[in-house]
């Protein structure tokens, strides 16, 4: 696509904004060729890019265990899972192109550290049990998020979420099944599982983002149906879904304040360590440097391959034109 930078229509024309908001209110889906406020386009691009980057960076902590998976069946399903993540990344990058932003531009922002991705992937994977717990918690949290995104107002993103959610559901079941197997296993397998849960529980709760009172974009995103539920609502939903699953396989969650509240029918939970959250988001988590270094290394070391592919394609074209 050569002409991606379309000259934007008058972004703040109140009549256009009113018509746009009326369509949103009526539950209509917004398509690439429709008029949309510049801020809507920007917010969506930001969200979709973050999502795509998360899929790509998310390949690293799980890819870390492919070569050590303890059975061939588990090895195959882990490779397939990481491959699905690459596919999701590709699919969502294509989605951002419908908003006029090229993949190269977004990837460059990821590599220079200006773009964000899910903070959970800045934690290291230290044992095989992490492959189970990531599937259970991280894919579980992603499903909670994406189920509501599948009803978002922007058509291409909503449709991508429907498809991606199906695969994430499969990944989550697979992860939970790894956990259930470890929970029934030897004492050292059980210990490995509990340790992984203790490391990933709080970072998983942080995946839903800052608390509503510290989330400045939320009101506008909700109004335009880019988001449909607040961070805290989604976080609570995740906790409510996950606690009974933990009880079912006999593991504990590392929060002494976790209690069932019969009035609200919610599982109340303790305070999140927001200092840790902001450190990780700000680039100072345990693996931020390593993740970016790995992505940059792959990109830099692959430069000669991409150049060769372009050079060969150009020669082929010249050959066809000459013939």
């Amino acid at each position: 696509m050569a002409t991606t930078k379309k000259s934007p229509p008058p972004a703040d024309d109140p009549a256009l904004v009113a018509a746009f908001e009326a369509r949103i209110a009526a539950g209509e889906s917004i398509e690439p060729k429709d008029w949309m406020p510049e801020r809507y386009r920007k917010q969506l691009t930001r969200m979709m890019a973050q999502h795509a980057h998360s899929e790509i960076v998310g390949m690293l902590p799980e890819g870390n265990w492919i070569t050590r998976a303890p059975s061939l069946r588990r090895k195959l399903s882990l490779i397939a899972k990481v491959q699905d993540e690459a596919g999701h990344g590709l699919y969502i990058y294509c989605g951002t192109e419908t908003l006029g932003v090229e993949r190269d531009e977004l990837v460059a922002q990821l590599h220079d550290g200006t773009a964000k991705y899910s903070s959970i992937f800045n934690y290291p994977t230290l044992s095989w049990a992490d492959m189970g717990v990531i599937g259970w918690f991280v894919d579980g949290a992603a499903i909670v998020n994406q189920t509501v995104l599948a009803k978002a107002s922007y058509g291409p993103y909503a449709r991508a979420m429907v498809r991606i959610c199906k695969e994430e559901n499969f990944h989550k079941r697979q992860g939970y099944e790894i956990c259930a197997t470890l929970a029934k296993g030897t004492p050292s397998q059980r210990a490995m599982l509990q340790d992984a849960i203790d490391r990933f529980w709080w970072p998983s709760l942080m995946m839903f983002g800052p608390s509503d009172k510290d989330s400045p974009n939320s009101a506008e995103l909700l109004k335009w149906r880019v988001k449909r539920k607040t961070n805290d609502e989604l976080r609570q939903r995740f906790v409510n879904l996950t606690v009974p699953q933990a009880q079912a396989i006999g593991v504990t969650l590392p929060d002494p304040d976790l209690t069932y509240n019969p009035e609200t029918k919610n599982w109340d939970f303790g305070e999140i360590d927001w200092d840790e959250f902001w450190q990780v988001v700000g680039g100072n988590g345990p693996c931020n440097k390593e993740r970016l270094a790995a992505r940059n290394a792959a990109h830099d070391e692959g430069a000669w391959v991409r150049e060769a592919a372009l050079a060969h394609a150009a020669k082929q074209r010249r050959g066809t034109e000459a013939a």
Binding site: A80, A86, G302
Partner: peptide
């Protein structure tokens, strides 16, 4: 091949390489 997973020169090749690793290990 599986050692390339997440480290390929282009995303499309990450997918292709994983696919072939899956076939071979299968």
């Amino acid at each position: 091949l599986s050692e390339w997973c997440g480290h390929g020169p282009i995303l499309e090749e990450d997918i292709a390489t994983s696919n072939m690793a899956l076939d071979l290990i299968g």
